[in-house]
Design a binder for these strands. Structure first.
Length: 103
DNA sequence: GGAATGACTCTTT
DNA sequence: TAAAGAGCCATTC
């Protein structure tokens, strides 16, 4: 169950992101004890069910943008949720850096 | 055991 | 942070 712990930690870290803030993949990976495993985060998020309670929409890439093609369902969903949390973004990029979560 | 893949990141240009 | 290249982690075939 060691390998499962990785996911558990990632889930925990993501759930720890406060409302109105966003975090990068690398940040989450590091906080979960997996430095450099940014891709893993994306991999796991891609396998999340649609009815998950995980705030995956608060996870963006280091450039401060959504790492998905515009027009995708997930993209629209994420943008919609972020906007609902006062996180404004232009296109796929967040308008302010202050939205980034500082643990 | 190796090669390919992925919602990435970092260091230089 | 724009663009290009190399690197890193785990899953899958």
């Amino acid at each position: 169950m060691d390998n499962n712990d990785r996911e558990i930690r990632l889930y925990t870290v993501i759930q720890g992101i406060p409302v109105g803030k966003v975090a990068t993949y690398g940040q989450i990976a590091s906080l979960a004890g997996l430095p450099g495993a940014a891709r893993l985060v994306g991999k796991i998020l891609s396998g999340l069910p649609a009815d998950t309670s995980l705030p995956w929409h608060r996870v963006i890439n280091a450039a401060g943008k959504i790492s998905m093609p515009e027009g995708s369902d997930s993209f629209n969903e994420q943008k919609k949720r972020l906007t609902a949390e006062n996180i404004i973004l232009t296109g796929s990029q967040i308008i302010l850096k202050q939205y980034l979560w500082k643990p």
